[in-house]
Amino acid sequence: MPTLETKSISKRFDSIKAVDNVSLSFEAGKITGLIGPNGSGKSTLINLLTGFVPYDAGMLVLGETTRLSRVRPYDIATYDITRTFQDVRLFEQMSVLDNVLVVLTERNVWSALFEKHKTYHLEKAKEVLERVGLWEKRNQLAVNLSYGQRKLLEIARAVAMDANIYFFDEPFAGLFPEMRKVVTSVLKELRNKGNTVILVEHNMDIIRELSDYCVVMDSGSLLAQGKPEVVLSRKDVIEAYLGE
C-alpha cells in the first residue's frame, strides 16, 4: 500500500522545468531508489516533498486521507517524514549527543524548561549513536567530526526521529567501505521495520543491492520505474546516464 504519493507535482525555476508533472507512489516496507543523471530533478523532488521548496502545482497524498497542496518544513515531522541532505547539515555548534537529543525534545514550555531528558531519551540517543559507531564521540562538537562521521550523525539524527517515511539524499557519497556497511544495514533495518525509504543514489551497485523499486528521472520528468534489474537494463535509461 502506498504511504506517500505525488499527484502531478511540478516546479519551475524561471524558464526551467525542474520537476515536470511527476506522479509517483512510494510503498511502505520498501526501499525506492530514486536515480537519474545530474540535474535530473531528484534533489528538487525531495526538496518539494519535504517542504524546502514549495511546489507550483500538484498534490502530495499521505496514507489514505491526507492530501496536501502545500508542505512546510516544520510540518513534515508531524507527518512522520524526515530526511538527510546531499550536503550534510548538522547543528554544528552542538555536541554529537545533543544533535540527536534535540530531535527527542518535547515542545511544551514547562517540560522544555524544567524537565530533564528522560532516561528513555538518553537510551534512544545512545542506541542510535552506537548503531552508527558515534557513541564514543558523543561529547565532541559536530563541527569537529570528519566528513564520514558527519554523514553518519545526520543519518543517526534521522533514525532517532522514528519517522515512517525517510528520504536519504546520497547517504553513501564520500564514505569509507566500513561506513557504507553501517549505512546499508541501517537502511535495511528501516525497511524491515515497515518504513518507507526513498534513496537518492548515483552508485548503481548500491541501487541494485538495496532498492526494491526504482524510479528514474531525466530532465525533471519521470523516465522509467519498476524493478531495478528491469529498469536499469532499459536502453533509454542507459542512454540517459551515458549521455551525461
Binding site: 548538522l90 552542538m94 522544555a112
Partner: peptide, 26 residues
Amino acid sequence: FTRFGKAVRATSDEEEVAKIVGINTN
C-alpha cells in the same frame, strides 16, 4: 542544560534543519 536551550541552539545553528526535525522555530 534545558531542552528549550537545545532547541534555541539548534535554531541558531541551522534554522531550516531545526524545522524538519520538528522544532517550531517561530
